[in-house]
Simulated assay, not measured.
Amino acid sequence: MLEKIRLDNILFLDIETVPEQEAFDALDEETQKLFDLKTQYQRRDGETPEEFYERAGIWAEFGKIVCLSAGFFTFKGDIRHFRVTSFIGDEPKILRDFNNLVNNHFSQPQHIMCGHNAKEFDFPFLVRRMVIHGIPLPNKLNLFGKKPWEVPHLDTMELWKFGDYKSFTSLKLLTKILGIPSPKDDIDGSEVGHVYYVEKDIDRIVTYCEKDVIAVAQILLRFRREDLLIEDEIIHVI
């Protein structure tokens, strides 16, 4: 039961990803061919790999993480806060800094990771990029040999399905129907690459990523029938 999980044992997270190179032409010839093969069934008729490359950030083989935001609840008596922080910089640094957070503060058996569509996207992407960079996996992300009920992950999209596996429910839609402020009031995932490479505005991406983390926490509160966070309860840690 969700109500039996202590909120301060949950680490909420979200990642923002972009194509590993700014343009298709920056890839070596072999990688271009591999991207062509990987995406041949996703591209529309007549659409070239070059034209499709702006979507490369959704694959860990051709994308990279430019921002990882994490949040967690703290309680002091009756006072509740939600602390959210972000890791930016070069990708290996982002992954190492996140590993340090997990290993130092969220590595015990009672700790759980939570995201929206995270089992399908965020968690696998994180693990694959760690493997690519030769970074040891934290136990919470190393699922080898674990049974499904031993995996310490929560996914708000999966929770919303209630066993129905026929459809995808976006974070924007779920926040709308649950009466939660939308995290998509500025940019959405399809625009992150442009903001990163063209506008070079990482702060805008951080704000967007942190809003997603807060929204996931709010959704979980709604599932538990608890009061939503108010602005004064949210602390942005630099």
Rank of each mutant, 00 (worst) to 15 (best):
171 L>E: 06
183 P>V: 09
80 R>S: 03
98 F>L: 13
27 L>R: 00
151 V>T: 10
16 E>I: 07
230 I>Y: 10
62 F>Q: 00
38 K>G: 01
172 K>N: 11
7 L>Q: 10
150 E>F: 05
89 G>S: 15
203 D>E: 15
43 R>Y: 06
54 E>C: 06
49 P>T: 06
181 P>I: 12
57 G>T: 03
16 E>H: 08
96 R>A: 03
169 T>R: 09
133 H>V: 09
11 L>R: 07
50 E>Q: 14
13 L>E: 03
167 S>M: 02
198 V>K: 11
5 I>Y: 12
109 P>M: 11
112 I>L: 15
69 S>M: 01
104 N>K: 15
98 F>M: 08
170 S>A: 08
112 I>C: 08
203 D>F: 09
208 Y>F: 13
200 K>P: 10
159 L>Q: 05
107 S>E: 08
18 V>P: 02
185 D>T: 05
164 D>G: 08
103 N>Y: 07
13 L>M: 14
159 L>T: 09
60 A>L: 14
201 D>N: 15
218 Q>G: 04
124 P>N: 11
181 P>F: 08
75 F>Y: 07
237 V>P: 08
102 V>I: 15
40 Q>R: 15
190 S>K: 15
10 I>E: 08
105 H>C: 00
31 T>V: 11
77 G>R: 02
117 N>E: 03
53 Y>Q: 02
125 F>C: 05
65 I>F: 11
42 Q>N: 15
195 V>T: 12
213 V>K: 04
4 K>D: 14
30 E>M: 14
56 A>H: 04
81 H>Q: 07
25 D>I: 02
101 L>W: 07
1 M>C: 08
71 G>I: 00
175 T>G: 05
158 E>R: 12
68 L>M: 13
142 N>G: 08
237 V>R: 04
212 D>R: 02
124 P>M: 14
223 F>E: 05
37 L>S: 13
136 P>A: 13
207 T>C: 05
101 L>T: 04
185 D>V: 06
118 A>C: 11
44 R>E: 12
109 P>E: 12
91 E>L: 13
139 N>K: 10
37 L>M: 11
33 K>D: 04
165 Y>V: 10
236 H>T: 13
37 L>D: 15
95 L>T: 09
76 K>A: 09
104 N>H: 12
10 I>V: 13
149 W>S: 12
230 I>C: 02
110 Q>S: 12
134 G>P: 05
185 D>Y: 01
237 V>Q: 06
71 G>E: 09
128 R>S: 15
89 G>Q: 01
168 F>W: 12
116 H>G: 06
14 D>Y: 03
31 T>Y: 13
216 V>E: 07
11 L>W: 08
152 P>N: 06
70 A>S: 15
193 G>P: 00
1 M>I: 10
108 Q>A: 12
59 W>H: 14
121 F>K: 10
24 F>S: 03
2 L>R: 07
15 I>K: 03
22 E>C: 08
64 K>C: 09
236 H>G: 02
136 P>G: 10
223 F>G: 14
46 G>M: 01
107 S>A: 10
48 T>N: 03
110 Q>A: 04
177 I>P: 01
208 Y>T: 04
64 K>V: 05
186 D>T: 10
237 V>A: 00
145 G>Y: 12
122 D>G: 05
224 R>E: 11
141 L>E: 05
189 G>T: 02
56 A>K: 00
136 P>V: 11
189 G>R: 05
24 F>E: 01
226 E>H: 03
